Computed example of a mutant assay.
Amino acid sequence: MKIAVVGASGMTGSRVVTEAVTRGHHVTAVFRGTPSELPHPDVDVVRGDATDVDHMSAVLAGADAIVGATRPAPGAEDTVAATITALLDAAAGTRVLVVGGAGPLRSPSGGLVIDDPAFVPPEWRTIASASTTQLQACEAHAGDWVYLSPPAMLEPGIRTGAYRRGSTTILTAADGSSRISTEDFAIAIVDELENPGRDRHFTVGY
């Protein structure tokens, strides 16, 4: 499979590149700037800004699947809708897996995760709100997309190969925590690319 990863220098995107290459996929890693270090030697490295529709249309042409792992810089959270809309435009009907946020998931206590301080403390609320806006922009677009919300805590860790798949309600462990390592999150992403599920919005976690 030919997979393009947009935002390949980020915490999630870089691990998706590694996971996909390990499984034998042909990967194009799209960087907005100049990468500090190049990924696997078999990866095609391309510079591109997700908001540049004309350039990205050429970059993404021929891809079987696209991973949108872009993340706004602090203070630029209001750009997420325009960025994902431009990426979906550039994809021209090719399926895009959008790496989103946990904000628009349902909370076990009712309501949305963004409004539950157990999962979203005040300092995370701005980026969590941006993920809700991002999902709404996807829902308004006619392109082929799927939106993956991480659990409340996503951070580098160990690749265990294990995770649970949920729908639109945040997944929690027996102790109430909601987390997954970025390495296992990348496994879930490539699993979805290889064997697409029926949900347009889903989540994973331990």
Rank of each mutant, 00 (worst) to 15 (best):
V6L: 10
G7K: 05
A8R: 05
S9G: 15
T12I: 15
S14D: 11
V17T: 05
V21D: 10
R23I: 06
G24K: 05
G24I: 09
G24Q: 08
T28R: 15
A29C: 03
F31L: 08
R32D: 07
T34K: 13
T34S: 14
P35M: 06
S36P: 00
P41D: 14
V45L: 09
G48A: 10
T51S: 15
D52G: 06
S57R: 09
S57I: 01
L60H: 09
A61I: 00
G62I: 07
D64I: 01
A65N: 15
G68F: 08
T70A: 12
T70H: 10
R71M: 08
R71Q: 05
P72Q: 09
A73T: 09
A76N: 09
T79A: 13
A82G: 15
A82V: 13
I84H: 14
T85Q: 12
D89Q: 13
A90R: 03
V96G: 00
L97W: 05
V98R: 05
V99A: 14
L105Y: 01
G110M: 02
G111N: 10
L112A: 06
V113M: 05
I114L: 15
P121D: 02
W124Q: 15
R125C: 04
R125M: 10
A128R: 01
S129H: 10
L135E: 01
C138S: 09
E139G: 08
A140F: 04
H141A: 12
G143S: 10
Y147W: 13
S149H: 01
S149D: 07
A152Y: 04
A152I: 02
M153S: 15
G161R: 05
A162E: 15
R165F: 04
R165A: 12
S167W: 01
T169N: 12
A174P: 00
A174Y: 00
D175F: 12
D175E: 14
D175I: 13
S177Q: 11
I180Y: 10
A186S: 06
I187R: 14
E194V: 02
P196K: 09
P196F: 13
G197N: 03
R200M: 02
R200K: 08
R200F: 00
F202R: 05
